[in-house]
Design a protein around this nucleic acid. Structure first.
Lengths: 217, 217
DNA sequence: AAAGCCATTCTTGTATACGAGAGCTTGACT
DNA sequence: AGTCAAGCTCTCGTATACAAGAATGGCTTT
């Protein structure tokens, strides 16, 4: 499997969409983006196909492509699925995790604590990601890990907003420790439940955030 | 969301791949397929992008596209994920399912029994699908249901081969009934566990089948 | 006779040209 | 003055042309 030209364009575009350069609902101009990337419309349209398949854009025939608006309902659904998938990763990881990976999880958690005490929320966020990706991989199921990674990435922009909510980081830390304990003990059901709740909180926090925004309008 | 030309071609191709017209590893000739569908190479290449995103084909730059070979390991991983996703659907459905849907599940199960007694494995297979798709929908999470449907479809060709294994249909029937009972009682954990085991059996059966084939070589 | 190299040919990747449909603007009519 | 319609323009969808890379076959050499 190798990377072609349109793959690179698709990745760049995906990044730009997730990073917020293109607001949801805006139209992506083929011609403009083509000359921006120094190519013709053809490879750009191929990149569009990929983004459409990933659910990031919507192609309206004879109208153009638009950055997809993900409604609140769909977003909550995605958070719910994320919770379920992470729970599955935890369930499988509890049966398969290596000692080395357990040590890695501890280390990531330690770095989380350091970042928390230093008040560096960016570093915290980064180590938090490491923690979760480790669990994905330790599920011992590459297909599942890939699926988890994809959805995680998709939710990234929305998760970021609510990590700064009051007291969330400290609570998240203790949850991480409980999860590692369950994994170390090999208790599949408990690891799954803890992870499900840990991630579901993000969905709930997001829900509250949404409600607050709506009320403020 | 509307259907464009290349969407139709992609669907046709996907069907043909899953149905086995194109063996894994074979190269898909752009020019040949283009004139077969009465179009130029452009819309065909767009269809390829979609199939590649769905993981059905592999694009090797400057070499062409090939029907992906799904190895035994990846296949088992996919079955495992299917079991986890269905478990998730069951967990959520137990909390949200409607009485009407419970009745539909009973009805599907009855038709399963009839097919079983009549020895019509095709009809059994069809009603089995109805049963599972009902549970996907009753998760009350359209995103999850879509994901489940996609993977279900992907595994279809491989599931079909092992349904005919000795005694599987009868056992599957009783499992279905237990699942409906758990859903009706609103016991989320039990519904999840039963569905996980119910689907995991398919993976195991498939594993045995593979081992048997390998031994016979 | 076998192996390696070169050339030819086939196929992919990209650019471009052309047709068609959707939206917008302008003008006319009520 | 407002609204509706018709024509125009702009963009998308598709075909086609062209360039570059890969594979294959034949020829030469050891």
């Amino acid at each position: 499997m190798s990377r072609s030209r349109s793959d690179l364009i698709a990745e760049t575009l995906e990044d730009e969409i997730l990073r917020g350069r293109f607001r949801p609902g805006t139209r992506l101009d083929e011609t403009r983006l083509a000359e921006e990337h120094g190519v013709s419309r053809t490879p750009l349209r191929e990149a569009f196909q990929k983004l459409a398949a990933a659910g990031l854009i919507e192609q309206q025939p004879r109208r153009g492509v638009f950055v997809r608006e993900v409604g609140a309902v769909e977003l909550l659904e995605m958070f719910e699925v994320m919770a379920e998938i992470e729970a599955s990763c935890g369930r499988l990881a509890a049966q398969r995790i290596t000692d080395a990976a357990l040590a890695d999880l501890d280390a990531a958690n330690d770095r989380c604590r350091e970042a928390l005490e230093a008040g560096e929320s960016d570093a915290y966020y980064r180590e938090n990601e490491v923690f979760h990706h480790l669990i994905y991989e330790q599920s011992g199921n590459r297909f599942l890990a890939a699926e988890a990674g994809r959805l995680h990435r998709r939710l990234k922009p929305f998760r970021r907003t609510q990590l700064h909510l009051r007291g969330r980081m400290a609570q998240s830390m203790t949850e991480h420790q409980a999860i590692v304990a369950a994994l170390r003990a090999g208790e599949a059901d408990r690891a799954a439940r803890l992870l499900r709740e840990h991630v579901a909180v993000q969905g709930e926090k997001f829900h509250h955030l949404m409600a607050g925004l709506r009320a403020a309008e």
